[in-house]
Simulated scan of single mutants.
Amino acid sequence: MNADGQVYVSLGQLMALQFQARGLSFIARQPRGSLLAGNHASRLRGRGLNFDELRRYQPGDDLRHLDWRASLRTGKPVVRSFTEERDRPALIVVDQRMSMFFGSVRSFKSAVAAELGALAAWMVFGAGDRVGGVVFNDERIDAVAPLRSRKRVEALCSRIVQHNQALNASNPDHEGDGQLDKVLQQCLALAGHDHLICIVSDFAGAGPRTLQLLRQLSAHNDVIALQVYDPLALNVPRTGQLRVTQGQLQVELAVQKQQVRQPLGDFLGGRLKAVASLLRRSQVPLLMFSTALPAADQLRDELGRRR
């Protein structure tokens, strides 16, 4: 199989993305232009502070940490000291369903999602946190438990590659069977609280149950959605023939005809807007990625970290 990074990816390609993930973070303070700045920043908790002990005040201590009750009780200024939480678990959720096996410009959605999943894993690993994930297709869901280990990143990337290289135009498409919701339900079981959950998908088949599950997940965890889309959803060509496939069924559409192009554009664009609306209602931060551009470049732009 030719793993060119545009239709299929290889383990070597995903492992090499470690270098492109350097300096990127979902949690660090974001510049003003970033989607995660402002209101969104408060939704990404980062590492918290755990109470450590009460001790005597020392010059230079933050006055906001003064414990007034203990100070009045002892007659001397006492401060609360804290230690930073470390080793935060993260779940990188990567969609490799048949709805992702499509691309009209540069890459397939499935390949872009695979790269984004690997980049997210390397970002988490670089921050010193535990990396785990869930990789799924139309029929199978594979989970990798979080662990702070390069080998665990490799294990997750290996699962992504296995699912990615199993995609084939002859595979059946089960978009309407609720697989996305099953995955989110499994995430609820895996992530009790204080996880970072990064979901990379086109969110095909999302509905009211998806919204409910996203709200449940984000109640006690930080959830961020990376939606992969193809530019065809925004701009259907005006000339030529467009071949649409679903499993073994192939249909050629004469897009130069207004009665064909208009409904197709409305359908594809409507799906994209519906998912964006659903994610806004769930209050999950949404980053959007096109198949027309390299995943790493778009991630830098979306996080506002491009120099």
Rank of each mutant, 00 (worst) to 15 (best):
D4I: 11
G5H: 03
V7F: 01
Q13P: 03
L14N: 04
R22S: 11
G23T: 11
F26M: 00
A37R: 05
A37I: 07
A37D: 15
G46M: 02
R55Y: 10
Q58A: 12
H65S: 13
W68T: 14
R69W: 03
E85K: 11
P89H: 06
I92C: 04
M98Q: 13
S99E: 10
G103K: 01
F108P: 01
F108R: 03
A113L: 02
W122N: 02
M123Y: 01
V124I: 12
V131E: 00
G132H: 02
N137I: 03
R140E: 15
D142N: 12
V144Q: 03
P146G: 01
R148F: 14
R148W: 11
R148H: 15
C157F: 06
V161P: 01
L167V: 13
S170N: 11
E175N: 09
G178C: 10
L188D: 04
A189H: 12
P208Q: 11
L214N: 00
N221C: 12
A225I: 01
A225E: 00
P231A: 01
L253D: 05
V255N: 06
K257T: 11
L268F: 07
G269A: 09
G270M: 08
A274F: 13
A276L: 06
S277C: 13
L278W: 01
L278V: 07
L279W: 05
R280L: 12
R280N: 14
S282P: 06
S290T: 11
A295K: 02
Q298R: 03
L299D: 01
D301T: 12
L303M: 06
R305P: 04
R306P: 08
R307S: 15
